[in-house]
Amino acid sequence: MNPLLKVDQLAKDLGSFRAVDGISFEIPKGKIVGLLGKNGAGKTTTIHMLLGITTPTSGSISYFGKDFNSHRQTSLQRINYISSYNTLLGRTTVLENLQIYARLYNTQGHKEKIRELLTYFEVGDMKNKIYEDLSSGQKTRVNLVKSLLNEPELILMDEPTASLDPDIADKTLSLIENWRKEKNISILYTSHNMQEVSRICDDVLFLSNGTIIEHDTPQNLAKKVTKAELILTYEKDPKQALEYLQGRSILYEQRHPSQLIIQTQEQDIPRIIFDISKTGLWMNDITINKPTLEDFFLQISRDTNGTP
């Protein structure tokens, strides 16, 4: 079965700067693929090439098994786009904006479709409001309605929740997740928010200096950071525990007399807890901070910056 989107050796030079350097990836049906990277890593340039707004220097893009360059209109009819950086016309109402896009996409029964989507995204009562008078969260949900008018099989989402408060972002994300489950759509999702990416993406492409340096599930990428943090809190001075850690040259920090923060490999944590508990010390609390996708992001960022 053809992937919905296939990118092969895509590159973009902006003057003497190589913004995207020969990236290749695929998006299968029903998958959410995250495109992660620091600012300037090439995420937005990639999205713009995927929309045909920026011309690639080399490489190829194909949607639904057909070359994008020669099937631009049929491809764009089956995909859609949303970005926190691109809004709709500010002076016109929500309904007027959506009517324009419904006609652009030749949406059949567009009045009913717009009503249904506005209700789903809980902005049905906003339809006659002027777009620029809406809050950021409402605008994002109206933009989501716009991005679903043509019943796309694939949506390119460029940091859709970037300007939202955490609770509104969470709600928006839930709506996207539910819609994806109901309609089995695919999404290419860029974000700086690692929790968001871990939550909704099946796969993550890690972009650095225009190249894909990692491609895996969020869970597997997080596992690549082997260091974890173990926080042990005691009733009194943990003298025996300190002796144990020093005897085995395990790195630790004592920010509080009764608390030890131990940096170690994730797989060593059970053994350390077991060994220390044998010393007879009473632990009040054990906290394990496992590596997350954010830790991986920070590690990669440090590595690519050349900083320790």
């Binding site: 707004i53 764009l76 786009y81 691109n86 016309l89 500010g90 896009y101 652009l104 996409y105």
Partner: peptide
């Protein structure tokens, strides 16, 4: 220019519009 001021141009040309 109105479409540029509104940051709406990319939305338009991300559709099949030529």
């Amino acid at each position: 220019l109105w479409n540029m001021w509104a940051h709406n141009l990319t939305n338009l040309f991300a559709s099949p519009l030529t």
